[in-house]
């Protein structure tokens, strides 16, 4: 059998399985972010936002909308891969893939794009929710779609590495809770870093989430704290690095083969 055909069928099998998994448990995967983000829009956007006034030339609701969409894309693409891949390890169903003629890069791509699919679907749901509260005008459609896709790829790959190292369900939640959430909240979702004192502005520039949120905001609103195109290039570099690391770990059988 032709190798390319085998790889394509194997990849689509993994992807379909991933999509089937998160849609089957939609009440755990798709509904909570929709409710959480609706609360953010109501509380921060409507109630508190009306007292804050404009930020970056836009009302507060419009300003936080790209950040909230990006926040849900980041957390969902990451957590989809960590929970799914770790469950496969935990239940040993990953062995099915390891004994099959599926190369590591196909396994990795399948899981990552499964995470991307959930991230983007949740992003779409949150965007639709946002339309109930504010208007949406897209400044640069290409940049908007590219950055949201690449961000989902980056965090899904990060989630994969997390799952490879994880030995218990606690290990799956440590990074999202103690690293990802603070970085996201401090990544300019709710404010422009220009509001911060100089020292904190400088420190914020070390936060990778800031670049993604701002690039996405630039794609939608046309305003950003940083150079969006440079940020896009940086995201691409991070993807290459993390994907390479994940592939290397998978090839070595880290956490999978004895």
């Amino acid at each position: 059998m032709n190798s390319v055909r085998i790889y394509w069928v194997a990849f689509s099998t993994i992807l379909i399985k991933e999509v089937r998994r998160f849609t089957r448990i939609w009440a755990q995967t798709l509904l909570p972010p929709a409710i959480t983000m609706a609360l953010y829009f109501v509380i921060f956007g409507n109630l508190i936002g009306s007292r804050i006034g404009e930020m970056g030339g836009f009302n507060y609701m419009q300003f936080i909308m790209p950040g909230l969409i990006m926040m849900s894309v980041i957390t969902n693409s990451y957590s989809n891969v960590t929970s799914s891949f770790f469950s496969s390890k935990f239940q040993k169903s990953i062995e099915e893939m390891l004994v099959a003629p599926v190369p590591s890069w196909v396994i990795l791509t399948g899981f990552v794009l499964g995470g991307v699919a959930r991230g983007l679907l949740v992003g779409l749901i949150v965007t639709i929710m946002a339309l109930f509260f504010t208007d949406l005008t897209v400044h640069n459609l290409f940049l908007t779609i590219t950055v949201v896709f690449l961000t989902a790829v980056l965090f899904a790959t990060g989630g994969f590495i997390n799952a490879l190292f994880a030995r218990s369900f606690d290990d799956v939640t440590i990074i999202p809770t103690f690293i990802l959430t603070p970085l996201t909240y401090l990544g300019g979702v709710f404010y422009s870093i220009q509001l911060l004192p100089e020292f904190w502005q400088g420190l914020s520039l070390f936060n990778p989430v800031l670049y993604m949120v701002n690039t996405f905001r630039f794609g939608i609103l046309g305003v950003s704290d940083i150079n969006a195109w440079a940020a896009l290039a940086a995201i691409c570099v991070f993807i290459v690095l993390l994907f390479g690391l994940a592939l290397w770990l998978l090839e070595r059988g880290r956490g999978l083969r004895q």
């Binding site: 194997a10 099998t13 399985k17 089937r20 169903s93 099959a100």
Partner: peptide, 19 residues
């Protein structure tokens, strides 16, 4: 196997991994 997967899906998924 994934305990929440359906019986037929488990077999079909395995076939998919084999191309």
């Amino acid at each position: 196997f994934g305990v929440f997967e359906k019986v037929e899906d488990i077999v079909l998924t395995s076939a998919g991994y084999q191309g």
